[in-house]
């Protein structure tokens, strides 16, 4: 059915072209009520928010987002996922590109001034990922002379260099995936970021990597909402409900269960 594939590719090109031509427009296809919820997630974070090759979405954030949206009364086909890269999360909430964001979004005071947060629904911490057979890296203080990978513009690597191991050698890439490639090939020794993000990569190749398991910071992942959102209390209730009815644990186990990283206790929702 080669012809079909080519036809599909040409069709996609034509569709994209026509979309560009009419400058956005409304969502093609049918949405009967017109009542959709647009949720910002990561598209490139395996195990958390990930767009699969077939166009479907997977990950802990995705499952939590679906649970919350359904709790708010949306059907699964009324959920539209939008890619929210770190730099444009606040902008997307302010200008209405998305209705809420679950994208490894840490609750901080600076961000609270611009957007509202429900949750936290997860407490992550900075940790280190190494090859499974590595024994000499046991924590942030054991990285002197080691080659540590991190993602451009992220502070975790600087944190290690300034506060723990002054002699660490830093390599910056634009994706974690490249760090993983380099650690797998033995060119680099370790990478650092939030433990749950590391777990997502460890899950992809079970047995090849391990997480050192000595988190040395605390990141409260929250649900980002536009300032003054009326749904905040409802979402906080839904997050607490997910801790109790097992949905939270299931979302974790489905997506990160084989990473070798243990599920921590659920956090306490902060109704500020």
């Amino acid at each position: 059915m080669k012809f079909k594939k080519i036809a599909a590719a040409v069709g996609a090109l034509a569709l994209a072209g026509s979309l560009a031509a009419c400058g956005g427009g409304d969502d093609t296809g049918s949405d009967a009520g017109g009542d959709k919820i647009k949720i910002g997630i990561k598209f490139d974070q395996p195990g958390l928010g990930f767009k699969e090759a077939d166009g479907s979405y997977s990950g802990f954030d995705v499952d939590m987002a679906t649970y919350i949206a359904e709790g708010l009364g949306y059907e699964e086909d009324q959920i539209e996922f939008v890619e929210a890269v770190s730099a444009n999360r606040e902008t997307f909430l302010k200008d209405g590109t998305v209705d809420m964001i679950l994208a490894t979004y840490s609750i901080t005071d600076e961000r609270k001034a611009e957007v509202d947060f429900a949750g936290p629904y997860y407490v992550a911490g900075q940790d280190i990922l190494v090859a499974a057979d590595n024994t000499d890296i046991t924590g942030p203080k054991t990285l002197d002379g080691k080659k540590l990978c991190s993602v451009t513009g992220s502070t975790p690597a600087e944190n290690i260099k300034e506060n723990y191991s002054k002699g660490v050698q830093l390599q910056e890439f634009d994706t974690y995936s490249k760090c993983i490639t380099a650690i797998e090939g033995g060119q680099l020794d370790a990478m650092t970021t939030d433990d749950i993000i590391l777990a997502g990569y460890a899950q992809q190749d079970p047995g090849k990597f391990k997480i050192v398991g000595a988190p040395f910071s605390e990141e409260n992942y929250g649900v980002g909402l536009p300032k003054g959102s009326e749904d905040r209390d409802k979402i906080n209730d839904l997050i607490e409900q997910s801790f109790e009815d097992g949905a939270w644990e299931k979302a974790f186990n489905d997506n990160l269960g084989e990473s070798g990283y243990e599920l921590p206790e659920p956090p306490t929702v902060d109704r500020y």
Binding site: K147, Q169, L170, Q171, K178, T181, A182, G185, Q187
Partner: peptide, 21 residues
Amino acid sequence: LFGLSYQLGVSFDKELLYRNN
């Protein structure tokens, strides 16, 4: 970087990252 150095093993300095890069 990814082909010549990581795959084909061309390296100017095995120990010092900054020199190799």
